[in-house]
Computed example of a mutant assay.
Amino acid sequence: MRHFTQDVLDLADPLADAYAEVFTAPPWEARDPLETRAAFRERLERDVRRPGFRAVLEVSDDGGIAGFATGWITESPFRTDRGYGKVTERLGADRVSRLLEGALEVDELGVRSHARGTGLGRRLLAALTGTAADGRAWLLTWNRADDAVAFYRRLGWHEPAPLPGRETDVIVFLAPGHPAS
């Protein structure tokens, strides 16, 4: 397992290949692999510049990537692109500010099919979040990603309750060590 900051761009192509394999398999099978790969590769170029960006990769001797985790420190004001608007809708601006801003955001976590069931996902997540100040780490996932939701729950990640009537198709999880867990 190797830790990276902006130098993860040296492995951007094999990382994009791993990302596309993971995030075009069920339940994301409707996604086009080439488009998914290209969009991730482009986003990675921007993400490495975020405050506190870090990545953890399981890299084989031949340069293949079996699994990956990326994250950064969530800035204020809270973003509104991607799924972030749904996070604010679900939790409300006050809780977003209190629980998520300034915390380590786990942006991506993926394990390729050949490495599943080995504990790699757990190790990657622990390596990425182990340095979170005061245990303040969080992530979001799609509510139809049943395996991911079950995985986070098994590891003790906690879901802050949505505001009444504010269910969305994303679920927010707080790390087991998060002060609000």
Rank of each mutant, 00 (worst) to 15 (best):
S181F: 00
E45Q: 12
F173G: 11
F53D: 12
T131C: 14
A103E: 03
L139Y: 03
R153H: 13
E58H: 12
A12E: 10
S181L: 02
L174K: 07
V87C: 01
P33C: 02
G92Q: 03
S113A: 15
S76F: 08
A16F: 10
P77Q: 12
L109M: 01
E101N: 02
M1C: 13
V56H: 14
L125H: 00
G71L: 03
G67P: 02
G85E: 02
A126L: 09
L128P: 13
R123A: 13
A16T: 09
A133P: 02
E105Y: 08
D32G: 04
R144K: 11
R153Q: 14
I171V: 03
Y19L: 08
A55C: 11
I65R: 01
H3E: 15
W138P: 01
R79L: 15
A115I: 07
A69N: 10
W28N: 02
E167H: 12
R95D: 05
R31K: 12
Q6P: 14
R154L: 13
A25M: 12
D32T: 08
A148M: 03
R2E: 12
A180W: 15
A133S: 05
V172F: 08
E101S: 07
R79N: 09
A103S: 07
A69P: 11
R37F: 05
N143M: 03
D146G: 02
G64C: 15
T129A: 13
T88F: 00
N143E: 10
D169A: 11
L139S: 09
L100H: 07
A150V: 04
V170M: 02
R2H: 10
P162Y: 00
A38M: 05
T141L: 12
R31D: 15
A133I: 11
R122T: 14
P27L: 13
N143H: 09
T118A: 12
L99A: 13
S76I: 12
A30E: 12
T24W: 15
T74A: 15
V59C: 09
L57I: 04
L44W: 10
G52S: 01
V48S: 15
G117V: 14
Y19F: 13
G121R: 15
E101P: 07
V96H: 06
Y84I: 01
L99H: 08
L91Q: 05
A175S: 14
A145V: 04
D7V: 11
A20P: 02
R43W: 14
P14Y: 09
T5F: 07
A148V: 02
D62I: 07
V111R: 06
L125T: 00
A16N: 06
V22K: 00
V87M: 00
F78I: 10
L128S: 13
W142Y: 05
A161G: 06
H178V: 08
F173A: 06
P51T: 10
S113V: 09
V111M: 10
A126K: 09
D107N: 11
L9C: 06
